[in-house]
Design a protein around this nucleic acid. Structure first.
Length: 258
DNA sequence: ATGGCGTTCATAGAACGA
């Protein structure tokens, strides 16, 4: 099964890019982030037309997450919104069963400027994600937590680490929260297969970042222990970042042989 | 260090992103 994650940066503004990539890459399951569309403006007809069903949690103007799957997959939504804070109205988390695999699709807050209230929100959200992740591990079922984590886990994941030390995406507290997830028993799929390679999933629109390969690795797949032996491939469709009217993130995907 | 670009909406300029 091929599972992808893609921060589209506006699902309507980037619809031609999304559809072109879906038809080219043919993933079985897709987690989308940054829909930037209210619930009723999600382009479900266009997505159905290229062979995908979907559940989505929209929000006016910002955020928004979705899980897509081909018609051959049995897809069932099991929850939306990250547990732990009824006051939190931002659409950043959705869960679905895709056949026998539980898929958690997440869009972790950016957190800049740091320090400040946005960074505090990021760390609180991260804590809630850790709590949910721990709960999911207890079920002893195959789980994939995929999405835009807005964290570069190590110096290897940043083109120029020294410039990012004070940034919310690379501060010690942020990296520590990510490493706590690994410590719970989750596996970073990309690093499991390619421990030493330079791999990026995001390139800034500014200063020809893509052309210079000044990137960040911030979109990740975390696998529950029972899935790790089935992991065959992990890859970034980085050429998509070079398309017209494209997102600043590239699609990332894994192949599981079950 | 700063600002560069690109999206969205109360369609003009601001908020947000990373």
């Amino acid at each position: 099964m091929k599972i992808a994650t893609y921060n589209v940066n506006g699902v309507n503004g980037r619809l031609p890019v999304l559809l072109k990539w879906l038809e080219e890459a043919k993933p079985d399951v897709v987690c989308l982030q940054e829909l930037k569309a209210p619930q009723e403006k999600f382009p479900i007809e266009a997505i159905n037309a290229v062979g995908y069903q979907a559940f989505w949690h929209g929000q006016k103007q910002w955020n928004g997450v979705a899980i897509l799957a081909t018609q051959a997959i049995e897809l069932k939504e099991v929850g939306r919104g990250l547990p732990g804070d009824p006051e939190d109205i931002q659409s950043r988390y959705i869960e679905a069963m895709a056949n026998d695999i539980l898929i958690g699709c997440l869009y972790l807050p950016n957190g800049n400027p740091a320090p400040g209230s946005k960074f505090e929100y990021k760390l609180k959200w991260f804590k809630r994600l850790n709590d949910r992740a721990e709960e999911l591990l207890k079920f002893n079922i195959p789980v994939v937590l995929a999405g835009d984590y807005n964290v570069m886990p190590t110096e290897k994941d940043v083109y120029k680490p020294e410039r990012w030390i004070k940034d919310a995406l690379f501060r010690p507290e942020t990296r520590e929260a990510f490493h706590k997830l690994l410590h719970q028993g989750w596996t970073d799929a990309m690093r499991k297969l390619y421990p030493d390679e330079t791999i990026y999933t995001f390139w800034d629109y500014f200063r020809n970042a893509y052309g210079r390969d000044a990137g960040l690795r911030i979109d990740h797949f975390l696998l529950s222990p029972e899935l790790v032996p089935h992991l065959k491939i992990a890859a970034v469709d980085r050429h998509v970042r070079g398309w017209e009217k494209t997102s600043d993130h590239a699609p990332v995907w894994i192949e599981l042989k079950i």
